[in-house]
Measured scan of single mutants.
Amino acid sequence: MAAGGDHGSPDSYRSPLASRYASPEMCFVFSDRYKFRTWRQLWLWLAEAEQTLGLPITDEQIQEMKSNLENIDFKMAAEEEKRLRHDVMAHVHTFGHCCPKAAGIIHLGATSCYVGDNTDLIILRNALDLLLPKLARVISRLADFAKERASLPTLGFTHFQPAQLTTVGKRCCLWIQDLCMDLQNLKRVRDDLRFRGVKGTTGTQASFLQLFEGDDHKVEQLDKMVTEKAGFKRAFIITGQTYTRKVDIEVLSVLASLGASVHKICTDIRLLANLKEMEEPFEKQQIGSSAMPYKRNPMRSERCCSLARHLMTLVMDPLQTASVQWFERTLDDSANRRICLAEAFLTADTILNTLQNISEGLVVYPKVIERRIRQELPFMATENIIMAMVKAGGSRQDCHEKIRVLSQQAASVVKQEGGDNDLIERIQVDAYFSPIHSQLDHLLDPSSFTGRASQQVQRFLEEEVYPLLKPYESVMKVKAELCL
């Protein structure tokens, strides 16, 4: 049975990233139509530049190519590739079939990587351009969430054990800070992308030097003109047959890092959902379990974690691919890159769409948070109580021993009897502590235990987050809708 299948058929496997999760716009960027249309555009740009620099290419040939950029006979191309065992030459023939007058000058002087690699770089750039505003929107939604809850005390956790208090907004800023680093890295790697350009079979530009009869300047002009037509500021000066596969490492490393950030955020949300302090959106008709109707599973956060793990592992592909590119190139890269580049971007696209949807509907339960604080705060307040007693004339050592005994009794009630923490009640009825009984409410005010959390939130948002989001103001209103 021949390899390949009808990918629109229910009898043929289709990647869930495309069929179930990723956005239509990201799927289109990695589609065959987008790819092969870009090949034709690159052939047109090459012909236009070659004509401008004096090669015998007519206006009629150029116009014929322009008129057929979208006229792609995919069936013919597939048949040609089956016959020739070469995808680029299959599309040269297919393009030439609908451009008979231009057929002889299509791909003039070029090698397969002229269309293959340059198209990949265009796709990487455009895919990054799709991700950047999506990530900015996630940051914006979380920034709104953090600002609104900047002063809401909550129990902090280290080692997932109760620690000092923080605020809900401050905790959210930990998430935002990681995503801001990801946004900066995505922008950097996007701006650092260079075009492969017009380089020939081993990167020496020998074929173009021959076409222009040894004119170095025209060869350099050709490279520059096509690079500018493709919208790049610069091209690699040095290439082998391909652009260095280190570029793929750079791009997928940034995406993998984004995956790590999203995994951490969504894990926190899942843990908070278990504590009943916070939940992701839950639709009115949504079913959490087929057997347990009360369940409210954090399905979206779980999906993000599941896909983020996949995204983090994909960076190993370009690392290994770059390491086995012998001399000017081997074909070890080809099949692998067809999979890992598309999957990385479709996965990143999915987790950003999902995280935006989550961040637009996060639900906080202040009463649950308050109750958990009441359970733990008495123990945390013991040092403040000791200091207040010393100020009232008591002995630190005597007070410490009193607190120690009462704390152990209260802990026994919590752990052995399943009761509430009654340390404060014990202190309130103990005559030894009568000098500070009137101060206990103040000493137990949760806001006095959150330090500068709310001020940190305000400063972080104003100095770091809002300036970073400013270039994306025009796209901030787009909502994230999930079908599944």
Results as ranks from 00 to 15, higher is better:
6 D>L: 13
13 Y>T: 11
16 P>R: 15
18 A>V: 02
18 A>N: 14
21 Y>C: 12
26 M>D: 14
29 V>N: 15
33 R>K: 04
36 F>H: 13
38 T>Y: 15
41 Q>S: 12
51 Q>C: 05
60 E>V: 08
62 I>G: 04
71 N>V: 02
81 E>R: 08
83 R>E: 08
97 H>F: 03
99 C>Q: 12
102 A>H: 04
106 I>Q: 10
107 H>F: 00
108 L>R: 06
110 A>K: 03
115 V>Y: 09
119 T>D: 00
125 R>S: 11
127 A>V: 05
134 K>R: 14
145 F>D: 00
148 E>K: 04
154 T>M: 01
156 G>N: 11
166 T>Q: 05
177 Q>L: 01
179 L>A: 03
180 C>D: 01
181 M>D: 10
185 N>G: 09
189 V>L: 07
194 R>L: 04
199 K>C: 10
205 Q>P: 02
210 Q>W: 00
212 F>K: 04
214 G>Q: 07
219 V>S: 02
222 L>N: 07
225 M>R: 09
228 E>K: 15
233 K>L: 10
246 K>N: 09
248 D>N: 01
252 L>D: 04
253 S>Y: 08
255 L>G: 01
260 A>K: 07
263 H>M: 10
270 R>V: 09
270 R>A: 01
301 S>K: 04
302 E>V: 14
306 S>V: 11
309 R>Y: 08
310 H>Q: 12
311 L>F: 09
320 Q>T: 00
322 A>K: 10
332 D>T: 08
334 S>Q: 03
334 S>L: 12
336 N>F: 06
341 L>W: 05
343 E>G: 11
344 A>H: 07
348 A>K: 01
354 T>K: 05
360 E>K: 11
361 G>R: 02
364 V>Q: 00
365 Y>S: 01
370 E>V: 04
387 M>L: 03
389 M>A: 00
396 R>V: 04
396 R>S: 01
400 H>I: 11
404 R>N: 12
407 S>W: 07
414 V>G: 09
429 V>S: 15
434 S>C: 08
434 S>Y: 04
436 I>Q: 12
437 H>I: 14
437 H>R: 05
444 L>Y: 10
446 P>T: 09
451 G>N: 00
451 G>A: 13
452 R>E: 12
454 S>L: 08
458 Q>G: 10
462 E>K: 02
472 Y>S: 00
473 E>K: 12
476 M>L: 01
477 K>T: 14
